[in-house]
Design a protein around this nucleic acid. Structure first.
Lengths: 191, 191, 191, 191
DNA sequence: AATGAATGAGCGTTCATTCAT
DNA sequence: TATGAATGAACGCTCATTCAT
């Protein structure tokens, strides 16, 4: 009985993940249930409501990312750890998490995980800066934000070109002075 | 009444723009009408249906961008023209246009404008490559795609840091050989 | 000014008549106004609301029918007068009046006219029965009801075949005893 | 639950039938649902949209009529079979079917049933003509049309008097020559 | 525990009616 | 006075959620 229930639970989560990826996060609960091969009732037995289901998926993805990130933390060169983390991210449906994070999630885990993942990565960024591979004129938190936006908000399938270009933009060229960050940033929401 | 009607029309378009920006493009027509300070009926007098309203906003934004881009085309240095165009883009809600363009828009203008804007920018990119400011190993169309994704799909408020980093990634460093595009690109959907 | 107003009024009534005939009585006020070549405001200046407009048309039609019926009353043979009245009816959009009459009309004229027209025709029917042209076993009021239903509720264009068959059913054959009305009528809503 | 669902389905169909009969076919879905004692959602679970509901009712009515007509076909005297069929018709809300048939129904069954019922009745009419009970100068198809109009378009509750008079108009008087169809029909859409 | 029928609030849209011009 | 823009109640329909089986 437990085994069945578990199987159902993950069938539902998988179905939600798949459909949300394919058709946007507006998929209906009915469709998710059908895709999972269960009735809506079963879906609601496992997840009290739509938000809970979506948050659950997001939590799973973030946990996976946190674990991967923890495994990379401290490994040198940090630059390459960063590359591996990005590679890892692009396989996760992190795009889902954004709207959930801005929207006052029910599960406290969600912002906690975000904070944890963010600071883990910021640490790796700082390491890479210290190792001279990442331009030092970008505060680590900003660099993480840039990476995050690039990887998570840019469509379901991460765009390699974009990712590569962003990383190139962050990287310190090996054989010259770090590029000067252009001017004073002016009108943005602050540098 | 003409003056009032015009005022209403743009109040509605503005409201739609603002709310679609803030809360995603799933805003309800009622909310848009309320935000604009009119009744739903008025909204529907000006825009026959939801799609028409959204497409209208997108067309306005694309037209503005096309005009700005035309004005920049041919100006040297192309690199700086590109910077100005990006600056222009970040103020526009181009994120809206994406789903409309993929979804078989009713208004033929929409894909036409996209093609026009895209090739105008590709021309400027090619100029910048010829002028030695933009790495030549990225095909102009790809560079435009990267910029587009960076600027249009990355949230309602464009992120200056991201933009700058992307541009830095595209730029040819002034005083050294162009960086070698890392390896063979491997697993992406093609370089 | 008065002339214009009158012209507008009848343009609206005509348009309503035409459209209600063509597309059923669910035509929108906007469409009627457009067909009449005026704005909705003008329509509402002449007719306080939709019901008033429809009732007005019905009153006009009934008045015309009353006048025609008055002119026929007393003329012999009554049977032929009846034929002419039916011919007259088929040109009128009396179908409209039914729902208005059952629905508690605002204008008292409407049921009054109906009563008047009905009893005028009943008189002619009675004459025809006296003259031996119409079967005497149908109460005049019933005969009128039958004619009314046949002519008014059977579609926009009156159906000659139906009308003729109904009249043949009512007519006393010239050279034989009146047919006996079949049995006792039994289960109907009363004979 | 199957039993309940079936009960609901027919409660909805019955309610729709009743209300469409009483108040015309413009009844709102909400009203139908309320009359059936269910929520709108339930209504829509059983019938995908308004048209489907109406067509369903019409199909049911036509099927019932077809079965009754088949049972009568070939029975002598055909004239009495016809009477029974008419008796049957008046109990059905066939008036609904007219607008559905003119309006390109979704369900192909609808026009098919109409053709079948129509030709079955035309056969019975022809039999009645052969048996000398129905005037031979009316083409069977026309006679069916007349009956159809009389029975179906003349209000929700069929009018016995009308029906009887129409049938009398169609009937061959037992003891005299068939009446001559009056003149040449003149201005109609052709005799 | 699983099912899917039932529910009803809410969305997009229409249209009779009002009112500013 | 004529216009047509504005209004909002009401409609057809969807879907997250509940509940009887």
């Amino acid at each position: 009985m437990r085994a069945d229930a578990l199987r159902n639970r993950s069938a539902i989560a998988d179905a939600a993940l798949r459909l949300a990826g394919e058709r946007g996060e507006a998929v209906s609960m009915e469709d998710i249930a059908r895709e999972a091969g269960v009735g809506v009732g079963t879906l609601y037995r496992h997840f009290p409501d739509r938000r809970a289901l979506l948050e659950d998926i997001a939590v799973d993805a973030l946990r996976e990312l946190r674990d991967a990130t923890r495994a990379e933390a401290g490994r040198a060169p940090a630059w390459e750890a960063l590359l591996r983390i990005v590679d890892h991210c692009v396989a996760l449906p992190l795009s889902l998490t954004k709207s959930l994070l801005t929207d006052e999630p029910e599960r406290a885990e969600l912002p906690e995980l975000e904070v944890e993942v963010t600071s883990l990565i910021a640490g790796i960024v700082a390491d890479a800066q210290r190792e001279g591979d990442l331009r030092a004129d970008v505060p680590p938190a900003e660099a993480v934000r840039v990476l995050n936006v690039a990887v998570c908000r840019c469509g379901a399938r991460a765009d390699d070109h974009l990712t590569r270009v962003v990383l190139d933009g962050l990287r310190v060229p090996k054989n010259r002075r770090p590029p000067v960050w252009r001017g004073d940033e002016g009108r943005g929401e602050g540098s």
